[in-house]
């Protein structure tokens, strides 16, 4: 057991408590991002010079046809993948300056994730899943904040349950809880409601909306669903690895209009 040292690195670079999201500040910034998969003839340019910034305290949705590069953009921005060229900043941190350890700590302390499926560790209870990133960091969660998150998500009576004892909607809510619990600088969701029916989907999106409006969080989700996207403050449209449209204050109808115009 050689590596005792790194379990409780309570204080290190990216671990510092994220600044309160002040409107007007930038939570994440992507400059001229290019991502090429493979090489030679079979290479795919998944991102082709994307520049975008995600202001703090805003809810952004990313839309676009299948294969347009949405997931790629999300993964690269969230430190799960690296760009071929270009730059991603989370707050003041340039991701390219971080090694695997640095990126891991960044994801743990400053980013929240909600995936489409398989969000929770099956051997941990709901509560343990929610505080997992903090447990990994060896940090104590902020009790008051945790309580308010749990109340907002209305999962208090499910905290001791294992994921397989929860419904799909409850599982997604726990996942949102985990994303919120560490007060990250930014929360990413790749089709977080893709597997839910419209009622449960509305619940989860409502929670994300509340997190932004009431708790001042920053949220970026990828979705195919215009209704889901309409919960956002802003919708980005991607096609062939480029941002082709940027809509503020969207409604389902305006989104559908834009989608039609983009011919998808």
């Amino acid at each position: 057991m050689a590596d005792e040292s790194d379990d409780r690195p309570a204080q290190e670079g990216p671990t510092a408590t994220p600044p309160e999201a002040i409107p007007g500040r930038i939570a994440a910034q992507v400059d001229d991002a290019v991502k090429v998969y493979g090489r030679g003839e079979t290479s795919v340019r998944a991102l082709d010079g994307v520049s975008v910034s995600f202001p703090a305290g805003r809810f952004t949705a990313i839309m676009g046809p299948s294969g347009s590069g949405k997931s790629t953009l999300l993964h690269c921005t969230a430190g799960l993948d690296t760009l071929t060229s270009g730059r991603v900043m989370i707050g003041d941190t340039d991701l390219s300056s971080l090694d695997d350890r640095g990126l891991t700590a960044l994801r743990r302390d400053r980013i929240g994730f909600v995936f489409q499926t398989f969000n929770l560790v099956p051997t941990l209870t709901a509560l343990e899943n929610i505080v997992l990133p903090m447990d990994l960091a060896g940090r104590r969660p902020d009790k008051a904040w945790l309580d308010s998150v749990i109340d907002t998500l209305a999962i208090r009576d499910r905290l001791k349950h294992k994921p397989n004892e929860l419904s799909g909607g409850q599982q997604q809510r726990v996942a949102v809880g985990r994303a919120l619990a560490s007060r990250p600088q930014i929360i990413f969701g790749d089709e977080p409601t893709g597997n839910l029916d419209s009622r449960v989907s509305a619940e989860v999106l409502g929670l994300l909306r509340d997190a932004v409006s009431r708790l001042d969080q920053t949220v970026v989700i990828v979705t195919h669903d215009p209704v889901a996207a309409s919960y956002a403050d802003r919708v980005l449209f991607l096609a062939d690895g480029k941002i082709v449209d940027d809509v503020s204050g969207p409604t389902p109808e305006s989104i559908i209009d834009h989608m039609k115009r983009l011919g998808s």
Binding site: R101, A105, R107, D109, L120, V121, L132, L136
Partner: peptide, 9 residues
């Protein structure tokens, strides 16, 4: 998933 939410190698 564990790695994504911040588990070191």
């Amino acid at each position: 998933l564990l790695r994504a939410v911040g588990m070191y190698r």
